[in-house]
């Protein structure tokens, strides 16, 4: 786990929440887990590749996702519409893009994939890779940022 990068991802996410959805974002206790946390109803997944590889998963319940997206869109939404899913994907993409930009400016090459959003009851991500989970409390509910990033062997 490239722990020195983790703070960059968490900071970019909290700053983006303040900037895009005008919500304070507080990070609760960060924990290392053997795999990403399961159980959220909405996951935005972004792959990382380059000098290191891994993924970032933004995991939240559907009400939180809808409320965040409504703020971004500027109008009410009826649940997890395609536009709500797209807004969540864009938020994840902006947070990750900002983090990898800072990391690249520090001399480490890191690229990101376009985001993928999956949703449903009790969804999980079955890759058992050591993951750092940062629960972020926002005005709209909790967003968990699951970060896995490892050097290439």
């Amino acid at each position: 786990m490239r722990l020195e990068f983790v703070k960059t991802f968490i900071d970019s996410t909290t700053h983006l929440f303040q900037e895009v959805v005008c919500s304070d974002a507080e990070v609760a206790s960060i924990k290392m887990r053997p795999s990403p946390v399961a159980g959220g109803e909405v996951m935005a997944i972004i792959g990382l590749m380059g000098d290191a590889q891994g993924r970032v998963i933004f995991d939240m319940d559907s009400l939180t996702a809808t409320r965040i997206a409504e703020c971004m869109i500027g109008e009410p939404s009826e649940g997890l519409t395609p536009m709500v899913r797209s807004a969540i994907a864009e938020l994840a993409s902006m947070a990750t893009g900002r983090a990898i930009s800072e990391i690249n400016n520090g001399g480490v090459t890191l690229k990101m994939s376009p985001p993928t959003v999956i949703s449903g009851a009790n969804i999980s991500y079955d890759h058992c890779l050591e993951t750092l989970v940062a629960p972020i409390t926002t005005a709209y509910g909790e967003v968990r940022v699951n970060i896995t990033i490892q050097d290439l062997k």
């Binding site: 993409s93 947070a95 990750t96 893009g97 900002r98 990898i100 930009s101 800072e102 690249n104 400016n105």
Partner: peptide
């Protein structure tokens, strides 16, 4: 949202006139 120096230079070299971070 991907706005590191090398990527901005690459985009400008490709012909972009300007770069704005998201």
């Amino acid at each position: 949202s991907v706005s590191y120096r090398d990527k901005i230079e690459e985009a400008l070299a490709a012909g972009a006139k300007c770069f704005i971070p998201k």
